[in-house]
């Protein structure tokens, strides 16, 4: 198994929510190292844990809603991830899934889990393809940040 996995998270048909997917699509041309896996995840929470278990390093790229800092790219600490049940009662948070894996003695959790967030201006509620310009313009920065984390 490869050592590093890069996961772009998003919904490809929900506007700016797709930014994580778009970032990893672009990354494929920039990373030739065959020991790095690049995947798209149209899902969250528990399913992400399934994807990165067994790797040494996982880099997750997702969207976060922030009207004030739309277009920025931020590194998020794991302990800033949602901790509790969400208001939507049927998704388990990544934080909860990770904590559970630790508690049950799972020894294949990556030593390094990095979450890079691209700030998007609003909650996406309308099905459409394509990003708003402010989010699209953040992609090169998100790519640079990801490459920096890969080499770090």
């Amino acid at each position: 198994m490869n050592k590093t996995i890069i996961i772009g998270v998003g919904n490809p048909i929900l506007g700016d929510d797709a930014v994580g997917i778009e970032v990893v699509k672009n990354l494929r041309n920039k990373i030739s190292n065959p020991s790095i896996d690049i995947v798209e995840a149209y899902t969250g929470g528990f399913n992400l844990l399934d994807m990165f278990i067994g790797y040494e390093k996982a880099i997750i790229i997702d969207a976060i809603v922030s009207a004030d800092s739309a277009g920025e790219v931020k590194k998020i600490n794991l302990n800033e991830l949602p901790k509790n049940h969400s208001w939507n009662p049927h998704a388990v948070s990544l934080y909860e899934a990770l904590r559970l894996a630790e508690k049950l003695g799972e020894d294949r959790i990556p030593k390094e889990i990095i979450v890079l967030a691209v700030m998007i201006p609003s909650i996406q509620l309308e099905f459409r393809e394509g990003l708003s310009s402010i989010v699209r313009e953040a992609i090169p920065k998100a790519i640079d940040e990801t490459l920096r984390e890969v080499n770090n």
Binding site: G10, D17, D62, I64, V65, L81, P82, I123, Q124
Partner: peptide
């Protein structure tokens, strides 16, 4: 609720 939006918090 709102199937699908999984944008982080």
């Amino acid at each position: 609720f709102a199937c699908a939006t999984h944008t982080m918090p």
